[in-house]
Each structure stands twice: as C-alpha cells, then as structure tokens.
Amino acid sequence: MRKFPYIEIDLKTDILAFAAFVMALGGVLVQGYHFVRGAQVTLFPPEQVIMIFYQYHPKDEKRYLRLGARVAYTNDGETGHNAVVEKETISFELDGVRYEQQWQSVHKFTGTEASVKTEYISEAKPEPIQAGNAISREIYFAPHSIRCTQKQPDCNVEKNYLTGIDFLNGIAGLEQLKITISSKLFDVKKPIRVSCLIDVDTALIGKLAAFGSAAPSCWPESS
C-alpha cells in the first residue's frame, strides 16, 4: 500500500477494479459489434437442378424451359437479427444472352432423373429466416416477361421464355452450364448469389430430348 498525504491507495484493489472495467468495456464492444453486424445469411448452392420442358397451354404445342432447385439458407446472426427472403431468381447464359426465371411456387420433385414429377406445395412468398436457424425448400421457377420501353426498339418482352428446342440447341456445344441463384433480402440493397456448374453431355441432352425433363447434378464452382 502506498501512502500519500491524506490518501491511501491499495494497488491490488486498484488493479482488480481496472480489470473489471476492461471486461465490462469489452462486453459492451462485443454487443455493439453484433448489433451493427446484423443478420448473417448464407445461401447454399443446390446439389441438383431440375429441368422441365413445360407446356403452358394445351393449344400451344411449344414447351418452355422451367427450372427447379432446392434453395437453402442459414442465418448466423445474433438473437433478434432475423432476415426475410423477399425474392429468388435463377439464371444462366447461352451465347451471351442471360435468361432469368423468378420463383413461382414451392414444389416437391419426385420420380427418376429422366422422368421428373412435380407436386405443388404452396406459392412462393416472402419467408423469414430466424437468427440461428436454417430454412430449405424446393422452388419451382418460371420465366417472366420483361419491361420494354419505346426507347428499346429491339427489346423482346418474352426474352426469358426459352423453348425446349432452343435450349437444347444452345447447350449442344457446351461442356458446362453455369447456374446462378440470386436472393433478394428485405431491406438489404445487394442480393446474395451463389453459382454451380452442370456438366453438359450426351446423356443430359438425350434425357431432355426424349423425356422433356432431367435432374442433373450441379457442382460447386470450386470443385
């Protein structure tokens, strides 16, 4: 113990008090970090992509490509930092043209790889991802019209509607087809995206040509 005029300081007590202050300050900083950090959502790439040549109307003999995939998330944010999936899309490119489909419904895909069957579960709608939890659903996507203005004379409103024949012709010369799933989270400006690669071979093309459906594996880009 040091003694000064009129003052006595116990060094041991002083050190313990300082240590307690540092620990309390550290706790406040950690809490502040997690508060600012918010929801931490991870979107996983699908292991498989469903391809179906879909006939929209009995009087229209054309069949158009629709895609399906399991879309899964985790939210590693702290308690209270939830997220909401606002919209999901799936896209790919052929000959430099990007084709996009939007979420349509939640389905259950069954059957064999060469004969895929679909079972409607519910419409696709915004869904919360609670902090510390995960969600997973099989989403059936569909092409949608795009907006064209008078300033875009070459714009094709139905650009995303790709017939099965055109799709087969487009992938015939490819070794791989890159599939990208994009998810827009509510109140988050930048969508999160994940991609995977489908190996294009004669087996895949043959199944699509013969049965109008296939369920090829989709491999992570890093594999």
Rank of each mutant, 00 (worst) to 15 (best):
W103D: 14
K117M: 09
I90M: 13
R66L: 09
I181D: 07
S223C: 01
P143L: 06
A131I: 04
K12D: 10
F18D: 08
P58S: 07
K87I: 00
Y6W: 10
P220L: 03
T79S: 13
I192C: 04
F211I: 00
H34P: 00
E119I: 05
I198G: 01
Q48W: 01
K184N: 08
K108Y: 03
V84D: 05
L177H: 06
T202S: 15
E175H: 12
R66W: 04
A17K: 14
E221C: 01
V200T: 06
E127C: 00
G164M: 01
K3M: 10
Q40G: 01
T89H: 07
Q130M: 12
K62H: 09
L29S: 09
L65Y: 03
S145W: 02
I192F: 04
T42I: 12
A214R: 01
K184M: 06
E47I: 01
G212L: 04
A24D: 04
T202Y: 03
D76F: 10
T112A: 07
V106M: 09
I179Y: 03
P153H: 03
V41L: 04
L204Y: 08
A39F: 07
S136L: 03
I135D: 02
S195Q: 09
I7V: 15
Q130L: 15
S105M: 09
L204F: 13
Q150Y: 09
G206H: 14
G212T: 10
V106F: 06
V49I: 15
P45E: 12
I165R: 05
I90Y: 03
A172V: 05
V28D: 03
V116H: 02
E47A: 12
C148K: 05
G26P: 00
N82F: 05
A215G: 13
I9W: 03
L174Q: 08
F92I: 05
V28T: 08
K207A: 14
T74W: 01
Q48V: 11
E86Q: 15
K3A: 10
I121K: 12
I171H: 02
Y120G: 00
F211K: 10
N160E: 05
E86Y: 04
I139F: 08
F18I: 08
D60Y: 01
F211N: 14
V106E: 10
C196D: 08
N75T: 06
W219N: 12
S217E: 11
D95N: 15
L25Q: 10
V30P: 00
A214V: 04
E78Q: 13
N160T: 05
S182P: 00
E93S: 15
K159T: 07
A131P: 05
H81A: 08
P45D: 04
L204D: 04
Q104H: 15
F21K: 14
V188P: 00
E61C: 00
V157I: 12
I198H: 00
G206V: 07
Y33F: 15
R147H: 13
L67R: 03
E138M: 02
N160F: 04
H34L: 14
K59Y: 11
A69M: 11
D76N: 14
P5Y: 09
D60W: 03
K117S: 07
A209T: 15
D187N: 13
P216Y: 09
G32K: 09
I205L: 12
A39H: 13
I135T: 15
A72Y: 02
D10T: 03
K151F: 08
Q150V: 10
P191A: 07
L25K: 11
A210H: 06
P143D: 04
T163F: 07
F92H: 08
V30M: 04
I198S: 02
D95L: 07
D60N: 11
Y73T: 07
P220K: 06
D10S: 11
